[in-house]
């Protein structure tokens, strides 16, 4: 069982990379059984040699998403201390961890979230927050797969789109998200100031106060 989870969905942008790596090293030392999970574009930060991951720490479980690797034909390029894993591994770990950090598609801001103390009857609600527009189709698909992974495991979860992340819901490429609302797989919300979020599919538009409420009541928030 892992007590600390870090989700990395993109290589840290240059202006925050040094601080991010310093904070990561410190945090990894704080917890007994951390897991670092690289997904989507994040797997490129493992093999491109630009980051000095503290992979010699034997207590850290370094995991790379299998599907993300296969898409990038990088299956043969993993350092020996890294292993291939799936979203099942990731989400099972998230449910049990006491802290979850996530570096989303923007590569700039890392959400650090202490989990609520798990008491009987307490909410296990997971909020997937999407605040960055995709640069290309693969990013769209992989962000959707993070949500579908939670849905496949029947987690108590919702998706909140905000800011440029609303672009995921625009255009023909948004149809993949429609399966979530059509089949009631997860809650779906779009934080937008006006009534209409511009979404092509039926999501519930919420104001800033309601979005803050969604965040406040989530046991875990993942920035995708």
């Amino acid at each position: 069982m892992h007590d600390y989870i870090v989700l990395i969905r993109r290589r840290p942008s240059p202006d925050i990379a040094a601080g991010f790596m310093r904070d990561l090293r410190e945090s990894l030392q704080t917890f007994r059984t951390p897991l670092v999970f690289f997904h989507g574009d994040g797997v490129e930060a493992v093999s491109d040699g630009g980051f000095d991951w503290p992979e010699s720490d034997p207590d850290v479980d370094w995991c790379v998403c299998r599907t993300s690797l296969e898409r990038r034909s990088a299956s043969n390029g993993l350092p020996s201390s890294f292993r291939v894993a799936t979203l099942v591994t990731f989400y099972q770990a998230v449910l049990c961890a006491s802290r979850v950090d996530s570096l989303g598609l923007g590569g700039r801001s890392c959400c650090r979230r202490e989990q609520r103390k798990r008491t009987q009857g307490a909410s296990n609600h997971l909020l997937l927050e999407i605040g960055f527009a995709p640069d290309e189709q693969r990013q769209r698909r992989e962000t959707l797969e993070m949500a579908l992974g939670a849905a496949a495991l029947e987690l108590d979860a919702s998706v909140l789109f905000r800011d440029s992340g609303l672009a995921h819901l625009a255009g023909g490429a948004a149809r993949g998200w429609a399966q979530i609302t059509d089949f009631g797989l997860l809650g779906m919300y779009a934080e937008a100031p006006a009534r209409s979020s511009g979404a092509e599919i039926p999501v519930q538009t919420v104001n800033a106060a309601r979005a803050a409420d969604l965040r406040a009541h989530a046991a875990t928030i993942l920035i995708l």
Binding site: L148, A151, R175, G176, A178, Q179, L185
Partner: peptide, 10 residues
Amino acid sequence: EYGMPPLMRT
């Protein structure tokens, strides 16, 4: 309809 196969759950 959605550009991908369904989840088993679906």
